[in-house]
Amino acid sequence: MWDLLRHLLETGISTLGDVAPIAAILFGFQYLVIRQPLPHLKTIITGFVYVALGLTLFLVGLERALFPLGTLMAEQLSDPAFINGVEGGPSSSDWRDYVWIYVYAAAIGFATTIAEPSLIAVALKANQASGGGISAWGLRIAVAIGVAVGVSLGTFRIITGTPLHYYIIAGYIVVILQTLRADRTIIPLAYDSGGVTTSTVTVPLVAALGIGLASSVPGRSPLIDGFGLIAFASLFPIVSVLGYSWLVAWTRRRGRGE
């Protein structure tokens, strides 16, 4: 019980440390530069308290309930004994022996993205700004599929030891080709969704997987090869959101019988 309270207090202080500079900049500019009283000041301050309190509870809950299990799971799934099916010896160096890793990477990438608060915010805003034309759930699922594919491919890269920039550059080329054909209105949102996926929930669970894998696959260094999963998780949602918008446009055209 005391342990929980201490954890809450520590995380609360660190969240306040995150909110304070933002609040200082916002209120500083509002009162020193714009010099106008904010409408609904009380609601805004209550909202800030909700944000800080909500993030604190969210983080403490994740750290107590899900992160320990997730990290443990990443270690167990990349453990040589689990991968080879027998005790002892180094991990297999054949990428085909790691099927459960690819499945787990895709599943956890998808699931953490659905729970990502900043993506919820962007999806809400996109739905509002488009007057309901962009579905918040459609966007979130498209982004989550992108993260799932990206993280899964990222684990494949760690296992095979192929250079990171080959994948990233190939991904950029796909994005450029898609952009040339995409509907202009979706492009900015697609580019933004790359960045929002990698935050509070996704990073700890995905980074644990990368580091666990890089330390157990023979010939990989956790310092050099453990990185890069985040880069995959922020590139592939761009591809999947552009793909999703193309699919929506295509089904609409078909529905009209053109």
């Binding site: 929980l4 916002l26 509002q30 904010l38 609904h40 609601t43 805004i44 301050i45 209550t46 909202g47 800030f48 308290v49 909700y50 944000v51 800080a52 309190l53 909500g54 993030l55 604190t56 509870l57 969210f58 983080l59 403490v60 809950g61 994740l62 750290e63 107590r64 309930a65 899900l66 299990l69 729970a115 608060p117 919820i120 915010a121 809400l124 805003k125």
Partner: peptide
């Protein structure tokens, strides 16, 4: 039991955060 308490906190925290978004971060 610890996991269930943690999950309850996560759910409550996320709901508060989204409410705070609509009240503070978006309007400001």
């Amino acid at each position: 039991a610890g996991i269930l308490i943690g999950l309850a906190m996560v759910v409550l925290g996320l709901a508060l955060f989204v409410r705070g978004l609509e009240m503070a971060l978006f309007p400001i």
